[in-house]
Each structure stands twice: as structure tokens, then as C-alpha cells.
Design a protein around this nucleic acid. Structure first.
Lengths: 353, 353
DNA sequence: TTGTAAGCGTTATCAT
DNA sequence: ATGATAACGCTTACAA
């Protein structure tokens, strides 16, 4: 293979043109409008493209096309430099889906929680990104309004609390998810089915809780059964789980609003010498690594579909200048594991990665 | 505020120049070489820059400067779309450190583990990134050689197994880290100190194990004490922990090669009705979310320093065309938590996030 | 079917 | 101290 014609690095369109004995233009056409170029020329050009390992420069294409071809994703750090349980897998899905949507993902974030909008502003005005994907919007989240004010394209993983009229979102049907989990518990033969959720007042939390209430009623459980709630913290979850475990008893089960809460239940069982699954069923929510590690049955979020959908939405916003008519709801998938297996005690089950 | 002079979006250098009644060049100078411009002009220009919220276009700057100003970071997915324990916090650190190094982070990855080099190639030849940061290099990892062959700048989190002559890396001193953990355990009054590590043969694992062996010998423990090893898996860790817990007994402690292994020990203790910390000390390694969640003492990796150092290294490679003389070793920090607290039983300790 | 020209926004170099 | 010129790599519109 010959050394690179121009400079010492990556070939440019001009290098290819010279090598293929055509004009720059023909090379560009060969890539973007192959029908405009004669077959034999096309072949020759492609041969040189392959030989020189040519790809159009992102910077040049961006400048020319007035689009960065990038989507910004904020890494919201919890305290230290940690990612929320859902953020990591979602980011991976987004990253992997990006090339199929002709873009790439640029991450950003700040140390303190303070100047979060500043970073969005910086990304936007330097034209580093064409759009944003946001997630974990909470009540009073300043981001949606800020982005809307400036006509900055974005899509949200999760409905936007403060603005029901905002339609560019994709979310998971938590109600159905938990209801399905309850159905699963019933089919596995667990009798009394309790629920450990988050404090009332969050859209997501209330929805999941309703899924449990509905399913449990549907299955004829009277008084809906034992219920508790606490914030997303293992120690707190363990404390809240104690009375619930007492209540459902051996042969009962507990559905939870998250994997962390489910883990709390598991720890309580462990401490009492009980085996999750065999003695008491436990189901979490999120399909996180935590659940996998502890072999907990969980309701898994369809991160890949959501990532793909959100990228489609921002792409449409960029090309058509308008948002979708409505948001999109996805169904989660139950991931059955040892914590809902009554048959075997399965103290150390294995799972293929 | 007036509407944007050019088009309907973000101001360009020309907009600022017109508004400030100077040429494009003067605006550019005001930003890059403020000393070349008269104070009053400078002020006027800056006023307009602020008013118009102007920032140079990344695409234009990249094209002009022949550098993308971006560093690529592969998100290596374990099986599903999960990130390794260390990858998530490291990515956050990298992302946050990037602006201070005049760059941003672009993530990429592939579904299967197969075409991993293809994605590196794609990022590189489209000039999307100037360099890469890699991590988790293992024996037989094709990436370092592939990148070196092509003179692609990169730096590695962790020494490169197959190529000791490669100097652009930053790593954590696992030996000192574990030794320090043992010192801590001794100072807390734990008697017999065992070790749960990984199977022999990995640089990282062997080093950590040696840290334990050295410290334990230094403290006069005969025969080094009980030792076990297993792969990074909770169920396996629990199995391996059983005999170790038997051996060190109440008042003993176990240092571990990772937080997952430490978690395994904890689970065994819990199942036996023992309280981590009060009855048996446990120390993990990584300072991961897992450790925080379970209130485990852990040896925390200095992700921020490492991220910053690696970005400095690639920056130097880009400007000076040469790699550092040698890699850089960082000292980890012990994060004491309840699992090494003998005094209080502390069943549900709290910690500020 | 192919080539030519212009411009995307920026900055280094060279005049003034 | 400031301004004009050119070039970075690419693509769309237009001319041959």
C-alpha cells in the first residue's frame, strides 16, 4: 500500500480524486449520489476509497451541512462520580444506536449540581451538538423549559412532569410492568403479594404502585395486601422491608419499585435465614446490574428501543422542525431469575452473561 | 435582546464583528490573542460576544485547526448493555475533566465483542476524534498494537500487558492499596486477616494479592493466613468466602481484590447472622457504587486524577508527537465504612451522598 | 456524465 | 492595532 498522498495521515477527498483520476466532485457523487456516476468510474473510485481508507471529514461535513451530527447526553453524577442505575445501560444503548442514526454521542457533565444549564448552553452555542437527550426529569427540572425557550431540539427518556404538552418522549409502562410481575408471582404460586415502593408523589413511582394494586385486586387479593415505601437507599429499604416480610410470610412475595428496593428485601430475607425465591418471592424493577448480580427477578427496561426511538425523534425534529404528535410508551420485559423460583432453593445459581 | 443577526440561531464571528464595528479578525484576536487588541476595542468586542452569546463553531475550528478536539472512549458492554464497575465512574471523570483539557468525549461501542477494532477505525478515519483513551486491556488485547501501528495517539487506564515498552498509561497502585487496607484492619483491632482474590495470572490481581501478603507478613501474621480466589461473580465469591470466614473467625477480617468479592463475603456473613464490621471485617477494592450501597469499606480508585492525567498525556502526544517517558502510578484512597467498624454494630448506617 | 465555483466559520500569515 | 487574504475539506447548485 502506498503512503498517504497528502500529509501523513488520513486521506482527503482530493487524494481519492487524484488517485482515481477524477475530480473531487465525482468522488463526492460516488458517495452521495452513486446514480450520477458511470458504473466503471464508480468502481474505480470505490477501489481507491477502499485502498486509501477514506471517509469524509466530520468537521468539514459539519461545517458544510450546518449540523454537528452529534447528540449531547448529560452524565448526571450522583454525589461522587457515579451514574444512576438506569443511566449507564441507557448511555450504552444510545451510543450503540447512534451510528444507525448518522450521529454520535457527546457526553458532558459538571461536578456540582449547580451550573447544569451552563453546560447545556456551552454545548449548544459552540455548535458541538444539534440536540440533546435528557432523562430523569423531575418536578421543577429547569431543563425542558430552558431548552424549549431556545428552540433547542431534544427528546426525553421519561415523560416531562411539568409540561404534559411536551410530546417528544419515550417511556416505559411501569404499570403494566409491575402488573406483569405480579402475574408472574401468582403463576409461580406465591400467595400473599406485597409491595415496596417509593414515597407517593412521583409519576413513575405512583404508576408502578398502581400496577401492583390493580393486578393484586384482579387476582382477588383482599385489601390489596401489605405495602410500604421508602427512598432509593439500601439501608432504608431493609428497614422498610422488615414489616412487609413479616406480613407476607413464607410463601408470600414482594414486588418492588426498583432493584435497590428489591435488594433490600433480599438482604432482610438473608439475614433471617430465608432463601429468596424458595421462601419469599422478590421482584425488582429496572433490569439493572444489581439485579443480575444478586440473581433477582426484575422488570427490565427496553433501553435499546427507547434509545433508538429518541434518536429518531431528535432526527425528525432536526429535519422537519416539528415534534411528534405524542410520546411513545414501551413495554418492559420480565426477567425471571432465582428470586421468583419456588421449586429449587438454588443457593448459588449461575447465569450466562 | 435583539434577534440573531444571521439566520435564526447561533451567532457567528461575523455577527459579532459587525455588531462591534470591527473585522472578523479582531474578534478572533480578542478571543485568542487579547494582547493584540486595544483595550477599548477589546471591551466593545467582548460586550457584543456576551450580548450575542457567541462561541466559535467547533466544526469550523476543527476544520481550520486540523484537530477534532475530541477523544474517543469505547463503552465495552458486558453481555447486555452494562458497563464494567470501573468504567462508569471513570467515564464520568473523563467527561468532567475534558473541558479543562480543551476537548470533549465521544463514546462509541458495538453490540457484539467482534468488530471492536472496526469502530476505532471508523472514528479515526472520519476524523471524529484525535485520540483514544482505552482501559481494561487484557492479555492478547489487539487494540494497543493496532493503534500503535497506525500512529494513532492513545493513552491507557492500566498498564498494557503485552507491551511493557508502552509508556502512555496511568494506573493505580494495587499493592499499596491493599497493604493500606490491611494496615487499617490491623489498626481497627482485627486479628487474623485473610484474602479473597482472583485466580492467579493477572497483573492487577497478583499485585493486589502481594499487597496483602506483604502487609500481613509485616504485621507478623504467620503463614500469611487464609487465602482464596475466584472470578468476579457474586455467587462464586460467596462459595469461595465460606471457608475463609470459617478460618478467620469472629474478630478476623478479609481483604478482597474487588468490591464484588467483598460483597460475597458480606452476604455469607449476613446469612450466618454475623454483622460485617462488628464480627468480621471486610474490605473491598474499587470504591464502586456497590461498596457504597452496601456500606462496605473499599480502596477507592482515584478516577479523577487518572482521567485528567490521561487527557494530559494524549494532549501532549498531539502537540509534541511523543509519548511520556514512563507511565504514572496513582495511590488509591481507603474509604472506611461500616464493614470495618468494630465498635458499633451499626446495622443501618447513613452516609452523606 | 463530469467539472467548476462558491461558501460553510474560523484563524494564521501577512500587509497596512 | 487592525484589516485583507487564504486555506482547512466538503457538498450543493450550476455550467459544460
Amino acid at each position: 500500500m502506498a503512503t498517504m498522498p497528502s500529509g501523513h495521515g488520513r486521506a482527503t477527498i482530493l487524494d481519492v480524486a487524484r488517485a482515481a483520476q477524477v475530480s473531487r466532485q465525482t468522488v463526492s457523487n460516488a458517495l452521495k449520489h452513486p446514480e450520477r456516476v458511470r458504473p466503471d468510474t464508480l468502481e474505480r473510485v470505490h477501489a481507491e476509497i477502499d485502498r486509501l481508507d477514506y471517509r469524509p471529514s466530520t468537521a468539514a461535513t459539519s461545517l458544510r451541512g450546518q449540523r454537528a451530527g452529534a447528540v449531547g447526553m448529560e452524565l448526571t453524577g450522583l454525589g461522587a462520580h457515579a451514574l444512576s442505575d438506569a443511566l449507564a445501560p441507557f448511555l450504552v444503548s444510545l451510543t450503540i444506536a447512534a451510528p444507525e442514526h448518522d450521529c454520535h454521542i457527546v457526553t458532558f457533565g459538571s461536578d456540582g449540581p449547580d451550573p447544569t444549564l451552563q453546560r447545556y448552553r456551552e454545548m449548544w452555542r459552540s455548535r458541538l451538538v444539534d440536540a440533546f437527550v435528557i432523562m430523569d426529569t423531575h418536578h421543577g427540572d429547569p431543563r425542558p423549559a430552558w431548552l424549549l425557550e431556545r428552540d433547542i431540539p431534544f427528546a426525553s427518556f421519561g415523560r416531562v412532569w411539568d409540561d404534559p404538552s411536551f410530546t417528544s418522549w419515550a417511556d416505559v409502562d411501569g404499570r403494566n410492568g409491575v402488573a406483569g410481575a405480579v402475574d408472574h408471582l401468582v403463576s409461580q404460586g406465591y400467595s400473599r403479594i406485597g409491595y415496596l415502593g417509593w414515597p407517593q408523589g412521583s409519576l413513575v413511582g405512583d404508576e408502578r404502585r398502581n400496577g401492583w394494586a390493580e393486578a393484586v385486586t384482579r387476582h382477588g387479593q383482599t385489601h390489596q395486601g401489605p405495602e410500604g415505601n421508602t427512598i432509593q437507599d439500601l439501608a432504608k429499604a431493609m428497614a422498610a422491608a422488615e414489616p412487609l416480610v413479616d406480613d407476607v410470610g413464607i410463601g408470600g412475595a414482594i414486588a418492588c419499585a426498583s432493584d435497590v428496593l428489591a435488594l433490600g428485601v433480599t438482604q432482610v430475607l438473608l439475614r433471617r435465614g430465608l432463601v429468596p425465591g424458595r421462601d419469599v418471592g422478590v421482584v425488582g424493577f429496572d433490569g439493572s446490574e444489581t439485579a443480575r448480580t444478586h440473581d433477582l427477578t426484575s422488570v427490565a427496561q427496553p433501553y435499546r428501543s427507547i434509545a433508538s426511538q429518541l434518536l429518531t425523534q431528535v432526527h425528525n425534529q432536526l429535519t422537519t422542525q416539528r415534534r411528534p404528535d405524542h410520546g411513545l410508551m414501551f413495554e418492559p420485559t420480565l426477567l425471571p431469575r432465582a428470586s421468583t423460583l419456588r421449586q429449587s432453593s438454588a443457593p448459588h445459581p449461575q447465569e450466562k452473561s
